[in-house]
């Protein structure tokens, strides 16, 4: 018999993957890869496992955001809304993470919409918990922040490269237009 995808009690009283499973998910993530086993176990007390049904939104563009999610299982799409319609930014699978900007952004507003395309399990890590880790275990918090800075720097570099390419292409097109 096929299980109903939205069965209420299954979600409410579902048994999680447990501490070990969460630790494995976190260990494979770039943000937490420099943490020791002990630190990962400590971190596992600060994260939240959430299950999403197909087409269920994780967050929407403009929502107030609190933190990031690591995909433990499933698939999600990231898209942005604009006056010309929705733009698909990317599709992410198990092991990927998203929403990390909210960990450091003061405004806390989501810049894109994330929707689960199949039954998806996410591990959420939020700003107040990062602050608490920084207060309780500063060395561990610095490791996470350092990795987070690297990720954000890499993304900034990629964005700058893309903008440079687009600007260059526009200039070339303008020159061709002027010549013809």
């Amino acid at each position: 018999m096929q299980k109903h995808p939205h069965f209420f009690w299954e979600d409410l009283f579902k048994i999680g993957r447990g501490e070990t499973g969460v630790i494995e998910v976190l260990k494979q993530n770039v943000l937490f890869k420099t943490l020791t086993r002990r630190e990962l176990r400590y971190l596992s007390h600060f994260v939240y496992e959430r299950t999403y049904q197909p087409d269920e939104a994780i967050f929407k563009q403009g929502d107030r955001g609190l933190g990031m999610y690591v995909i433990a299982r499933g698939l999600i799409t990231i898209s942005t809304e604009s006056p010309h319609g929705d733009n698909l930014v990317t599709t992410l699978g198990a092991g990927s993470f998203f929403g990390e900007v909210a960990l450091v952004d003061q405004e806390n507003l989501r810049t894109a919409t994330a929707v689960a395309t199949e039954r998806t399990v996410l591990v959420g890590f939020f700003k107040p918990d990062l602050t608490e880790i920084l207060q309780r275990k500063p060395a561990m918090g610095v490791k996470i922040l350092y990795q987070l800075s690297s990720v954000l720097a890499r993304r900034l570099l990629e964005t700058t490269e893309k903008i440079t390419l687009i600007t260059r292409a526009r200039k070339m097109a303008q020159i061709h237009e002027d010549a013809s």
């Binding site: 409410l12 999680g16 939240y48 269920e56 967050f59 107030r64 955001g65 609190l66 939020f126 107040p128």
Partner: peptide, 22 residues
Amino acid sequence: GRKIRRSFFQLVPNRFFESFFL
């Protein structure tokens, strides 16, 4: 205390989770 808090948040629907948490 943290475990008790996590168990409570586990019951909150995804849609309201971040607002409840904040």
